[in-house]
Design a protein around this nucleic acid. Structure first.
Lengths: 211, 211
DNA sequence: TTTCACATCTGAGCGCTGTACAGATGCCAT
DNA sequence: ATGGCATCTGTACAGCGCTCAGATGTGAAA
């Protein structure tokens, strides 16, 4: 109880430096790419000394983690919006397209997100907890599967389809960055016969949707 | 014609330093992980000065490229062996399992391979040239699809299935590194009902194999 | 109001990195 | 024997992540 102190809230000397640092990092990331994202460059961009960030993040990885966290929130929002925009079976395809588009539009951020996840050997998602309200993109996909007719009691089938969809979307997002697959990237706006087909083909529908 | 000089062949001062450097890099990579793979550390491991590598590689990226290249060759071999080990429809699943196993057994190398590819924005594979003899893993998958009944004249369907399979395998390889999907990793040896199902589900068979 | 504790920020510095360059070294063809 | 040249070394520089002692300002206690 005596530990009822606020954890990291209000402005101090220079206002909310933590926020300013994350913003500076995202600005740099967009402008110069991931390789330019040094801690010193972020501090420079935010107008503070190279040592200042260490009072808000234990090391560089923790700063990148904060940036990645906002990326996952953005991705989740994009997927949620995509689902809300259409109805029925189109929802899963729409979510998949939104995922790949996010990776295309934020390639540096997307890379930071997965780099951070790999370092921690964990995605920032609780696969077990299927509660959609906790802002969990993985569960958004799973819930949509269920709504489209997957049997939630057939756990294996359900998670199988969800994992397959996630793997497929991530794989596509990475492949679309290679010039061998430029036509994938080109298809992301407007008509997208190939991409739609890949998503359907990869199992963005529950297993028994083939009937 | 006057340019008939050999390009990078025989030993000189210290023998074949280029080879020694790549070997040293791979040794370091396996022992210490990708973050320990500095050019200076590689030179140290090979017993030469920090500047020596620059007579064989234009910069660090080019050295990593050489390492990645050998990784792709290893992967191609693993996939070819996997295909040769079984018959019929099992071949595609077997290739997929081999792909994911390779990523599991050589995580650092696998990461270097895709990092190098991302920097060049291209996989080291010629997707257009379907000649299997050029040692092209992507074409190995496509050819196997054809052998299993895909129509090579239906270009879209064929490449669709191949891209879907590649994306799925890469996605699975990455997901298997996250602790949320430990059961995927655990399944890679021996019985693998879930993984097999994911592969089948993701389209490791030609589209009309669902009939 | 003065004082004090403490969160915050700076400046200097350490060891590391990738890369450049001048010069030493040893092989090969003449 | 000589000269050219690929190869390798030593030194150097800027930038990196990170640490630490000390300066600076803020909110709470006196």
């Amino acid at each position: 109880m005596s530990e009822a102190k606020t954890i990291e809230p209000r402005p101090y000397h220079h206002g909310d430096l933590r926020r300013a640092l994350v913003d500076a990092a995202r600005r740099l990331l967009e402008a110069e790419g991931p390789s330019a994202l040094s801690l010193r460059a972020v501090a420079r961009e935010a107008g503070v000394s190279p040592a200042a960030p260490y009072h808000h993040f234990k090391d560089k990885a923790e700063l990148l983690d904060a940036v990645a966290h906002e990326g996952w929130e953005m991705l989740q929002m994009a997927m949620t919006d995509a689902k809300a925009g259409v109805e029925g079976r189109e929802q899963l395809t729409s979510i998949g397209i939104a995922y790949v588009c996010f990776a295309r539009d934020n390639p540096a951020l997307y890379r930071v997100m997965y780099d951070a996840a790999r370092d921690k050997e964990a995605l920032p998602m609780d696969v077990e907890d299927a509660n959609p309200e906790n802002g969990n993109a993985y569960c958004l996909v799973r819930d949509t599967m269920i709504e489209q007719g997957a049997d939630p009691r057939a756990e294996t089938h359900l998670e199988l389809a969800t994992v397959a969809a996630w793997c497929g979307a991530h794989g596509l997002a990475e492949m679309a960055g290679f010039k061998q697959f430029d036509h994938l990237k080109a298809e992301l706006g407007g008509e997208r016969p190939f991409l739609d087909a890949v998503f359907r083909h990869m199992g963005l529908f529950p297993t028994h949707a083939h009937d």
